[in-house]
């Protein structure tokens, strides 16, 4: 199964919804699209919504970590919601769990963003 990406914008918040499988094969395209939104469209904050993601490996961690650094450098915030228990183990192992705010659902994430940005 491939990766489907959907982008939605609320002011300076970009919501990225991923569905399917995020591996090395899919990671390049996601990185390029994500960077376009950050650089060309100047979106500062990002919510990465993963409830439709069936599979992720360390290539996905690389993309998230890379964008985290770019968003951080621009004084923005990256939040992740809808993480499955399997994907959660990868975030835990990589230490990203300590770096980023996580929300259980998209609604919870948007509420948190409402407070924080």
């Amino acid at each position: 199964m491939a990766l489907a990406t959907a982008y939605e914008v609320h002011d300076n918040l970009l919501i990225i919804r991923l569905e399917g499988e995020l591996d090395h094969h899919e990671a390049d395209k996601l990185r390029k699209e994500w960077q376009w939104w950050l650089k060309e469209k100047r979106k500062r904050h990002v919510l990465l919504e993963l409830s439709g993601l069936d599979f992720m490996d360390s290539s996905g961690l690389g993309v998230v970590l890379g964008r985290y650094k770019e968003i951080q450098a621009n004084e923005g915030m990256l939040m992740i919601s809808g993480v499955s228990s399997e994907v959660d183990r990868l975030f835990e192992l990589s230490g990203l769990k300590k770096l980023l705010p996580f929300a259980v659902t998209e609604e919870e994430a948007l509420q948190k963003f409402g407070v924080m940005i």
Binding site: A27, R31, D57, S58, S59, L61, G62, V63, L65, G66, R89, L90, L93, S94, G95
Partner: peptide, 22 residues
């Protein structure tokens, strides 16, 4: 080693072997 990668320019996380071992 966790987080070690020989290809940081490719945005590799350096977590491959750590994940395998875990």
């Amino acid at each position: 080693e966790p987080l070690y990668t020989s290809k940081p320019e490719l945005e590799r996380s350096g977590m491959g072997f750590t994940i395998m071992e875990n």
